[in-house]
Design a protein around this nucleic acid. Sequence first.
DNA 1: CTGTTAGCGCTTTCAC
DNA 2: GTGAAAGCGCTAACAG
Lengths: 345, 345
Amino acid sequence: MGARIEDVARAAGVSTATVSRALRGLPNVSETTRQAVSRVAADLGYVPSRTASTLASGRTLTVALVSPYMERWFFSQVIAAVESELRRSGYDALLVGLEQPYDPGRIAFEPETLRGRVDAVVVLTVPLTGRELDGVRSLGLPTVFVGASVAGAMSVRIDDVGVARTATEHLISLGHRRIGFVGGDPQQQMNFLTPSDRRAGWLAAMRAAGLDPDPRWEVVGDFTAAGGLRAGRALLALPERPTAVFAASDEMAFGVLAAARDAGVRVPEELSVIGVDGHELSELVGLTTVEQPVARQGALAAQLALAAIGARGRAVPSARPQEHVVVPVHLTERGTTCRLAGPGP
Amino acid sequence: MGARIEDVARAAGVSTATVSRALRGLPNVSETTRQAVSRVAADLGYVPSRTASTLASGRTLTVALVSPYMERWFFSQVIAAVESELRRSGYDALLVGLEQPYDPGRIAFEPETLRGRVDAVVVLTVPLTGRELDGVRSLGLPTVFVGASVAGAMSVRIDDVGVARTATEHLISLGHRRIGFVGGDPQQQMNFLTPSDRRAGWLAAMRAAGLDPDPRWEVVGDFTAAGGLRAGRALLALPERPTAVFAASDEMAFGVLAAARDAGVRVPEELSVIGVDGHELSELVGLTTVEQPVARQGALAAQLALAAIGARGRAVPSARPQEHVVVPVHLTERGTTCRLAGPGP
DNA sequence: CTGTTAGCGCTTTCAC
DNA sequence: GTGAAAGCGCTAACAG
């Protein structure tokens, strides 16, 4: 340990340049030399200094992973998948959280600090200000967004409007007319379109079915279970309450289910509930949900980032691949939705 | 953007050395000079290259965050807390996952690759082999374990034996005698003592109450909800089934609850269930549990790491602080446990 | 195929 | 208080 490239060179009787080439598997090194060098390096326990290598080559073998939350289900799943995929290729993940609690007025993220430290950036659905987005762009690094698509960068996501429409149409097809919506806070959106897209899908499906939702059927759930609980209570307290609820995330749906249980409202007989995500616990709870391939989105994002790095090496920020991948979702019917009981035969 | 220290020096009419000192707030710089340099640097949008700075100084302003899982509740919570605390101090988190799927026979983690890249290491309860542990130690960096205590390093954790005893004693105090245990896989433990400690606590409490648990009351739940479901089914299928279950994590407890629901066994009337963690959804589900301060453990770990870095600067690996913090837990009674119905008055 | 020579951008003695 | 110069450990032309 602590051996430097020069020690290896000396011990192997070659120059440091040759050691460098041999160890990195570059061409123009005789097989004999390569083996000799490898042996010596192993004996000495030589591990190249990534810092020095980065400084000299401009390559960092590191990808920034920017996430507004890491303790929420969706984000933790994606982070795990991205990290794992990066590691398989010898890349590291530099975890960058946003200043919390989130305050739209403040700068939560300084893209400049990433310059020279990473080869690419993966951004998880995050409410960045325009200024922050510009900052990311100005780094000139391959950038891939997960859960949102942004001009000038790659992206991996689901069709949020479609997801919401699918969920809502499912409820409509079961005969429901009064369908509540539990979503995010419209105030806090910025470039984070998921909440508004899912709301739009709900509204579109309702309108397409000739239904005009009562404004009171729309409640903020904050994308947390606790928020879903509050939202569910509000919905159930309505004079003429909805017979079904579309929650824009499974975690919020859990909250709605809890609210129903607390209020003595039977699910699905008196209230159908559908979520979005495919949360690990959905199956346990028997929640009907529109599942999205979360881990796969993370892996894809990492692959896009790596491909873009590979394609440009240290090259100038120029024509970068701008793929926009939309992965398919899947409606999984379970026990929390059922046909609306008619007024009796 | 892209400005280098030399550009700043030239524009400010001073040497690069002075710029370096001024910007880092070192002494021996006149206030006038400092302000002038700061202004010029700001104008030029100068951001020091952390890579170059690291190479020259040996300081990385980065802490490795090693975690076997990141998609599981406990781990994601701790990761979020550690990252947040590090960021507050201007440090970054380098996320290091273990090779998955975990295979005790293989090397899942190469500590050597961290050398020179981080100033400290935070390791989340992870089943490292002795070889890997030695590797971490040989880095000579401040190291803090979360969820386990290891000789020669700092640690933050709860008293796992005590937690299990508390949970089990609660059930015993409610009159239960046949108390099942859902825990981890004894095969896969290595240095990951949490599972065996919790088992030990259960056993100790049982024995202390003069109870001798049937071996069949002990089932592997793998620390996942799905595993808990399987375990719950196994327990409920027993000819003379337990009247209560202690699950070594809330996620496993959720699985047990699902198994009970599926089997038509009423909770808590026919089966009491208690977990460990204080999972976000526990409250929703009404799960009785022994809560641990997860985020606080992460924050503490980060603080210990930062303190150790500050105390040594670039110094030699020598007498490092070796604090071992054990944080308190709290039994929260909710709806899944109740007094064992007597044989009738 | 291999060695030589410059740096990468900063920090840090050591003089002044 | 400030500057000059010597690296940190490696990679990348460019010669041979």
